[in-house]
Write a protein that binds this DNA or RNA. Structure first.
Lengths: 167, 167
DNA sequence: TTGAAGTTTCAAGAAAAAATGAAAATAAGT
DNA sequence: ACTTATTTTCATTTTTTCTTGAAACTTCAA
């Protein structure tokens, strides 16, 4: 497999993975493209590389920036915006966990808490209460575990950073 | 909120959550329905509760069985099949992790390994190799961690089971 | 063997999600 | 203020995914 085929396969694989996990295929493909680009790319370069429209490119690049996975940079003397991805895959994983936790787990805990208020003594009511309670606990546990993971990672980062300063 | 509203909200929430994570909304809703049902339900009951067709019901119930989240049971003297869900949400979580690991992480490791074979000394080639290598490591790490988690959980289960036998 | 009850399949239709592209908005230089 | 380069928006179109429903299939009992 040569480089070009490899790049193609990488972009395709990342796109498929994304769509299996509820992430727009194109968004994941743009991410993949930027992950393997040594240099930041313009919207035009992305459009050309992936054969997608300007509007699509713009929407998905912005979504990637919202996720904290892609950043914008300006080159002196040029008006175009350049985009590049965070390349450290560990940081990427942590960022995705952080965002999904914020966007989904936390709202879910809110919903569970409102469902815990339902009072009903029928068999259905009892099963409902029990399922909600159990689920709430599992979600809370997952939430705490992920928070710990993220904090540990931040500390690790800060610690390394401090070490660098102290040299 | 009364029981019926709560049930409705639960089913809807679980469905939305599913679709955010790449799982068919209806499949998630059937799962939710069975999670809060004290008794196993027939295809007809599911159809009626969720206003969906027989074909749709059948497809998604089978998918849930493939995921190991729902089981079939027969009542003596009846020809209809009854379906019920695993209710222990911790087990549900472990089962989902197990299946997604098997269906996605493992194939992904295969792809990464084939991409690691790409050799190219250009700047693009170097960035490609570096990204693939880094990603491969992160995925392998996640895979191992999840395997540990699942094994720990199985042991916990086996241990509890043995304790019960020894009483 | 036949028929009734129940389940499964799958082509076609419907719904949902994503992409396009042109117009509007913004920003930067003169 | 005006012109031009660039980005953003969004109504419309396209693509993808999901659902339907009827026919085929299976199972069981008489």
């Amino acid at each position: 497999m040569n480089l070009q085929e490899g790049q193609q396969k990488f972009i395709e694989t990342w796109g498929t993975l994304g769509s299996n996990w509820g992430i727009n295929r194109t968004m994941a493909q743009i991410h993949a493209l930027l992950l393997i680009s040594p240099e930041a790319k313009t919207a035009d370069e992305i459009m050309e590389a992936l054969h997608i429209s300007r509007g699509n490119t713009n929407m998905n690049v912005r979504a990637l920036m919202d996720w904290g996975l892609v950043f914008k940079t300006l080159k002196t003397g040029e008006r175009k915006e350049y985009f590049y991805a965070e390349k450290d895959m560990w940081k990427v994983a942590m960022q995705v966990i952080k965002e999904r936790r914020r966007r989904e787990l936390e709202p879910l805990l809110g919903t569970m808490s409102s469902l815990k208020a339902v009072q009903d003594e029928s068999a259905e009511g009892k099963q409902f209460a029990s399922t909600v309670q159990d689920l709430d606990q599992v979600i809370a546990k997952a939430d705490n575990t992920l928070e710990l993971l993220l904090k540990a990672d931040e500390n690790w980062f800060i610690n390394n950073f401090l070490k660098l300063l102290k040299r």
